[in-house]
Computed example of a mutant assay.
Amino acid sequence: MTKTVLCYGDSLTWGYNAETIGRHAYEDRWPSVLQRALGNQVRIIPEGLNGRTTAFDDHLADCDRNGARILPTILQTHNPLDLVILLLGTNDMKPVVAGAAFAATQGVRRLIQLVRNHTWGFGYDVPDILIVAPPVISETANPVFAANYRGAIEESAMLATLYRDLADEESCGFFDAGSVAITTSLDGVHLDAENTRALGRGLEPIVRMMLGL
């Protein structure tokens, strides 16, 4: 039976390209790379939105970017699911949103609760959850991103440790995206094509293990 995986994330999942201010080619985005690596026995659903937070409002946004408010609808849309991959927290680092790694960690905890308490129905099982810590924000000469993420480098450097501890507490899987990918200095936040592909390849072993493949 085909396994179904939801990739719930922000612009790193959407595939934002800092060089073109557009979107990476479909085949370069990490969910697509993961899909190719796992083959036809798995169906990968990419659900990335630029600017999405874990559980916080962004009142400057042109759409609802609160990940906690949108998640139940997304879960019901794609039900049933075998695995939910959560890759969020970078946008929480903006001072105007939350500005703290601890806040992002609490936001991810809320997302875990939403997955586990969702009314799945039809006798479907609650999916497993894989928490992915985003790569650390890096120095950039881009004045807009540097201003939007003021103080975020130090905070984002704490995400992997906090997320790992949360995964242990909540019995979730954990992967540190920073172990295989680094953010581009063009804006300090996003991944170039090489690094988003590396993330997809890096995730394959743990996703395969969590799905029992």
Rank of each mutant, 00 (worst) to 15 (best):
V42D: 07
P127S: 06
E155K: 13
V180F: 08
P143T: 09
G107W: 00
G48R: 10
M210I: 03
E204K: 14
L60E: 02
C7V: 11
L186T: 06
N148S: 12
P135G: 01
T90A: 12
I153N: 04
D168F: 08
Q113L: 10
F175D: 01
G15Q: 10
L213M: 15
N40L: 12
R116E: 12
D128G: 15
N142I: 07
V108Y: 11
G212Y: 02
Y149I: 10
F56G: 00
D10Q: 03
V180S: 00
M210D: 00
K3M: 04
A68E: 08
A103H: 14
G51R: 06
S138T: 15
L71W: 02
E155I: 13
R201F: 14
L6Y: 14
N40C: 13
L211F: 13
G200F: 03
G15W: 15
V108Q: 12
P95M: 08
Y8T: 02
G151V: 11
E155W: 14
L71D: 06
L111T: 10
V132E: 00
R116H: 13
A167W: 12
L162C: 02
L88Y: 01
A55G: 09
T90W: 07
E19G: 06
P80H: 07
S179Q: 04
I74S: 03
Q41E: 12
V5Q: 08
T161G: 02
N195A: 14
N117M: 03
S185G: 02
R29V: 05
M93R: 00
T90H: 04
R23E: 14
G178Q: 11
E47K: 04
G89W: 09
L38I: 00
A98H: 01
I112A: 13
N91C: 00
A61P: 05
R52W: 14
E47C: 11
G107I: 02
T161R: 01
G99I: 15
N117V: 06
M93E: 07
L60F: 01
T184Y: 00
G39I: 11
T183I: 07
L86F: 15
R110Q: 11
H24G: 06
D28K: 09
